[in-house]
Amino acid sequence: MKAVLLDGIVLGLGFGLLGVGLTLVYGLGGVLNLAYGELAVLGAMVVSLVKDAGAPLALAAVAGVAAAMAAAVLLDLTVMRPVYRQSGEHRVLLGLLVTLGVAFLIEGLLNWRDPLGALTVDIGGGPIGIFGVPMPMSSIWASAITLGAGAILVVFLGATTFGRAIRSVMQDEVGARLVGISPSFTRTVIFALSGALAGLVAVTSAMSSPLTVTQGFDLTSFALIVTVVGGLGSVTGAFLAGLLLGIVDTLSAYYVGQYITSVVLLGAAGLTILIRPRGLLGR
């Protein structure tokens, strides 16, 4: 039981980080980035490529995160521009459709280059006892990286001037422009951040199980569930929801089975929309 719970927390941290990346972009003008999971897969494939070329793991990981980040920035600078020029429901809808197209584009590209591609990140070393439970080294690394990234993010958004600017744009686009913050530049930074998070999650999740080319849509839906439960647009909410759902996922998978677990997670998202559409911590 304790072991399952710890596994759940490890998984949940990953979920949380995944959700944060999606929620950041949503918070900024209501666009759901359906290509989000594909960015993670893209990052993973770059890691795998660089690693296979003989580079050390850390370097490969950095290259992968950078690639996902670059792809996200490219996305923002090209196809997202016309989307953000729209407003209201037009923007929401066009954003949904365009990012859906981009998801196909990236998945198609990866499938074409390497249909069997998969990333496995092998962390050596034996298990370490935590609360009397032997935890594999990979889980510890993944959690440490996730927590570190989370902490940096929280400090960045909460304590730096630019982070506060971002939050002000998230709250009020027009108002932010009036006080001299450029929404389009902020958006680019957010996309970069979101892409980097996607890449990071790809690396950490590949530490426990291989990440394949076809998993983009699954990642997007997981991120979506987490964000919905946490409250669209809420960073802390996404972390909290990720943690919660990670634990639920592991427990349910352990006691009930995988398909039902997916239904349980989806049910959690559905119920959230019905009972508290703003999510756990949504505005």
Partner: peptide, 24 residues
């Protein structure tokens, strides 16, 4: 009173759950 996006998410969640039920 779910707007476009929440209706979209709700029905998408239903789709995925249905898919998993079929598989399960």
């Amino acid at each position: 009173s779910l707007g476009v996006i929440f209706t979209g998410i709700l029905t998408l969640v239903f789709s995925l759950a249905f898919q998993n039920l079929l598989l399960g």
